[in-house]
Structure formats: structure tokens, C-alpha cells
Simulated scan of single mutants.
Amino acid sequence: MIRRRLYIEERVSPTARWSFRLALFAVPVLVLSILTYRLGLLDFSLATVAFAAGLAVATLGGLLGAIAFFITWESGWVGIGRAMAAVALAGVVLAAPAVVIARGMMLPEIADISTDLEDPPRFQSLLLARPREANSHPLPGALTAGAQRAGYPGIKPADLSATPEEAFNAVLALVQKRGWHVLDAAPPRGAQRDGLIEAVAVSRIMGYRNDVVIRIRPTAKGARVDMRSASRYGARDLGSNAERIESLMDDLTAERRKR
């Protein structure tokens, strides 16, 4: 006599399956959007759209995962593990961008920061090196200056008790230490010419390019260092330019105190 075995087919939640697939698919989309921009295969606008698409896919995967969790919990279908994994993966992917964007939306809608709003350092070599579609970097007007003062009251020049030549060398060393690409470095020449350093700072993760110009002028007590940092693209920098200026100025002051 042949015994028959009873097979019970367990139902797998399709929502759980697709939630995990979407959350997982978002990872290569985000990575490729970053790599293609850094390699110059996509311009800023297309890379931004691709990155936003990756975040949207991750968000959709996380939402479907949350829905699938309750479906599998109530129905007993297989897939609760995938649903939880989708939510967790989406949370990891979205956490850092969400914090940066949320913080940046509370800051002024400007992308050009200077320690001197009356007579900001001017770009020269960088104006020739920038792509045509990049921001034009006009001098800040009254509205921009007011927004910067309100949003970034700590952005100030560095007054050093050092010769302009010593200040120039110290600043240039810090710029090179940060790995910024220096386009021009003209040392000061007494009262005839200010020291000027123009460089391109690339953000670590996204690879966004930011134009930087640093001016060194002689003063009665030594030298004054002014810095201007501007994003090449976009109307809002999410606070990155102010952070770049504050970081260099803090390091410059600390370096001079050691001497």
C-alpha cells in the first residue's frame, strides 16, 4: 500500500517580496548615481535626479515593508522576515540623507558664503575653469548678505599676528592637506598685491564640486584672511560652504597658536 503525503503550500506575501527587492535595488541606484557623477559620466542635474530616484525607491520599499509586516502578522503568510529587512534596509539608506536635508532646509537658501560681505574675494581663474551651466557666482547682494548674517553669524575672517607671507603659506598648507585641487596660488607682494588662492573642493561622498577663493591682506597687526566658498550647482548648499569655511578658519587659528 502506497502512503500519500499531504503537502501544505505556504503562501508567501508578494508585498513582502517586492518590498525587499525595492529596498535592495535602491542601493545600486544610489551608488551608481554617485559613481557616474564623480567619473563625469552624468552632469549634476541627471546625477541629482538619479540619486533622488534611488531615495524614492528606498522609501517605497520601506513603506511596502511596513505594510507587508502587518499583512503577514495578521494572515500568517510567509515573508515577515523580508518585510522587516526591507524596513531596516530602507532606514539605513535614508537616515543620513534625511538628516542632512532636514537640517539644510532650516538654513538660508544660499549657496555662496563669504567672510567679507562688503568686499568678498573674487574668483578669477575659477571663472574660466567652470562649466558654462554652473552658477555664475555673482557678488552677494543685500538680501543674500542679510540671509548669511542671520543664518551663519559665526562666519568671520581670521586676523593673524603673522606676516602676509607666513599666513599665505599656512593657508596653502591647510588647503593642500585637505586635498583640494589648487588652480592658482599667488603669494602676497607687500602693498602691491593681495595673496590669493583659488581651489576646487570636492565633497567626500557625492563628489560635488565647490569653488573656493582665499584672500590674504596685510593689516597693521599682521594679516587678514578672508575666504569665500560657493557651490557650482544649486541654489541651496545645505550648510556645506559655511562648514568648509569654519573648519579651515578654526584649523588656521589653531595652527598659528602653536607657534
Score class of each variant (00 low, 15 high):
257 R>W: 06
245 I>M: 12
111 A>K: 00
10 E>P: 11
15 T>Y: 13
53 A>K: 05
257 R>K: 12
3 R>I: 14
219 T>V: 06
69 F>R: 14
240 S>Y: 13
167 A>R: 02
217 R>P: 03
33 S>H: 04
49 V>R: 11
202 V>H: 10
172 L>W: 02
239 G>F: 04
130 R>W: 10
258 K>L: 12
117 L>Q: 00
212 V>S: 00
22 L>D: 02
10 E>D: 12
192 Q>T: 15
188 P>G: 02
7 Y>L: 12
136 S>D: 13
225 V>K: 00
163 T>P: 01
2 I>P: 13
219 T>Y: 01
220 A>M: 06
253 T>V: 15
204 R>G: 10
238 L>W: 03
201 A>I: 02
184 D>Q: 14
219 T>P: 05
15 T>G: 10
178 R>Y: 08
156 K>L: 11
209 R>P: 09
28 P>I: 11
185 A>N: 01
217 R>Y: 00
120 P>F: 00
99 V>E: 10
220 A>V: 08
248 L>C: 02
37 Y>R: 13
188 P>A: 01
214 I>A: 01
171 V>K: 00
67 I>W: 11
132 R>Q: 11
26 A>D: 00
254 A>V: 12
95 A>H: 06
210 N>C: 12
202 V>M: 10
90 A>F: 06
238 L>Y: 08
11 R>F: 06
71 I>G: 02
189 R>Q: 09
46 L>P: 08
10 E>N: 12
30 L>C: 04
33 S>D: 02
100 V>I: 11
110 I>A: 00
60 L>R: 09
143 L>V: 15
191 A>C: 09
179 G>R: 05
255 E>N: 10
247 S>C: 06
160 L>N: 05
10 E>K: 11
117 L>A: 01
55 L>N: 09
68 A>K: 08
126 L>A: 08
143 L>R: 13
113 I>S: 03
184 D>V: 14
118 E>H: 08
108 P>T: 00
112 D>E: 04
249 M>E: 09
190 G>C: 06
197 I>G: 00
151 G>L: 07
30 L>E: 01
188 P>S: 03
220 A>R: 08
34 I>H: 02
117 L>P: 02
93 V>W: 03
207 G>S: 07
256 R>L: 11
207 G>T: 07
101 I>V: 14
162 A>T: 04
245 I>C: 09
